[in-house]
Nucleic acid binder design. Structure first.
Lengths: 157, 157
DNA sequence: TATTGTTATACTCTATAACTATA
DNA sequence: TATAGTTATAGAGTATAACAATA
């Protein structure tokens, strides 16, 4: 029986302390507002999914990267990279050209439109970070990033 | 032309430093080994997905929780909770009974088999944590958990 | 009218297998 | 024989809309 000043819209909410010691649970929880912030600040305005954003930025900093390299960097399987690049190519953001040194491989480069979009997206991502991380001090942000990297590397490769 | 001591299996790998300052990217990266560890230690042995595991543990600590409450705790939409509970009910792990105080609502409880599975799963999850977090000191683990909670709460509710 | 839960449906993401072309 | 990339397909996860029962 909630008092008048209670704001619980629902059956009050249940105890989640039994899961809070699990890193996977905390990561999944933190992922929700993070993805929402991305969608608001970058995804919706520029019509980009998270992986499309990452691919564009990676290509801006790594011109001529191969789909194989993107596959590893984005932790995606090869066929998924193909359809990702199909979408970006259809939007006129990238080009795929056969490599001269290895005729099996492709070299992916940004078009001028792709370069411009990558620049805008990168700028907006910095705004986004400020919002997501506003509750954290600069030192806390650095520690959080570093600890997540440690986890990723530990069981990672 | 890689030297004999080079271990790079692939086209050497591209520069990802352009993304490393983004929390969303680091979360996605850390999520990969974390989910793999869950699948190895808990998911495959007990035939449980991550949300099935979370639901079982939540119900073990919150007997009689409603699907609505689970929906909020698990950040899932109502129809997804229905199919999740369908699966658990078909496996004889839970029971759904109408609430006496509100005939619209259901009260979900674990069966003895569900209770036993939740116990096993919780125990295995502790082993899993040790592996995922082995690269971190106890203090670092506590800080990481706390910072992720801050992020989740900040933009969260 | 609003809320709880279900059904039906569609959409996205991702994974696998089979194929080609080069090496 | 192995590798880079593509195609086709199937599976899991998730979201929306329409509905029934109850408040």
């Amino acid at each position: 029986m909630p008092s008048p000043k209670d704001k619980d819209k629902a059956p009050a909410g249940i105890d989640q302390s039994c899961l809070q010691h699990l890193l996977g649970y905390q990561i999944a929880r933190a992922d929700i507002p993070t993805r929402r912030a991305f969608a608001e600040h970058v995804g919706r305005p520029l019509a980009l999914s998270a992986v499309e954003f990452s691919a564009l930025v990676l290509l801006a900093f790594n011109p001529g990267a191969t789909p194989k390299q993107l596959s590893e960097a984005l932790a995606m399987v090869a066929p998924a990279v193909t359809v990702l690049l199909d979408r970006l190519e259809n939007r006129g953001l990238i080009e795929r050209n056969r490599s001269d040194s290895d005729r099996r491989a492709l070299r992916v480069t940004l078009t001028p439109a792709g370069t411009e979009l990558a620049r805008k997206a990168h700028a907006l991502s910095l705004e986004m970070e400020r919002e997501v991380l506003q509750a954290l001090s600069a030192a806390e942000r650095a520690i959080l990033i570093e600890l997540l990297q440690k986890v990723a590397r530990a069981a990672g490769p």
